[in-house]
Design a protein around this nucleic acid. Structure first.
Lengths: 99, 99
DNA sequence: ATCATAAATGCGCTTGCACGCATATGCGCA
DNA sequence: TGCGCATATGCGTGCAAGCGCATTTATGAT
């Protein structure tokens, strides 16, 4: 119960949801990139990433002056399924807008 | 985007998540039953149900002095899939506790 | 050593939301 | 009409969380 709730709370924020969407391509993304793409301040993004990390959704790795974030490959399958469903829903609604 | 976020916010609250879990059996449940089962005050439960209704997850029907809530059968499939995934995750974690 | 870039964090502010209590409203029944 | 049960809502309170700004920490280059 706890972990699912934590995951939901973490996702229920526009910037974090957008970040998850980007990170869900499986590749690594530094904070500075997310800041640029999502148009938020550096400190905000850093804290948002801490929330996602705390929720177990992403992992990070130091690489020179950058910190590279990516989706946590060890995320339990049931939780990954939640995120997949959410992203599918997002894609569906944006497709509807485009149509 | 908006609807998925609204749904996530609605789900990211313990009492509402528990209520959705109960309501997801497809049957009707009056507020008084939810109050009893979930152990919250009547006013709280009423407001929580208003949030779930606003998010499009449930519908209500007046029946004499009761208001019967049930899952919205017209909920878009992508959103229903999110909820199903969340409930599956909840069941998985409770099964792990039991094992 | 100094400087620049990237990221995290301390701090204070503000807003949103959950909460309880009291009250209003809707409905059935006597 | 008056009473009782079910539900909704107005209102005030407290806490959690988002926010920006400034600063610190980490790393690399000159």
């Amino acid at each position: 119960m706890q972990s699912a709730l934590t995951l939901l709370s973490a996702l229920a924020e526009p910037t974090r949801l957008a970040a998850v969407r980007l990170l869900w391509d499986g590749r690594e993304h530094c904070v500075c990139e997310l800041v640029r793409v999502l148009g938020v301040t550096q400190s905000r993004m850093s804290r948002h990433m801490a929330v996602l990390k705390q929720a177990g959704m992403v992992i990070d790795r130091r690489d020179a002056q950058w910190v590279r974030y990516r989706r946590n490959p060890d995320l339990p399958a049931e939780q990954a399924a939640i995120i997949d469903a959410v992203l599918t829903s997002l894609d569906a609604s944006s497709n509807r807008r485009a149509a």
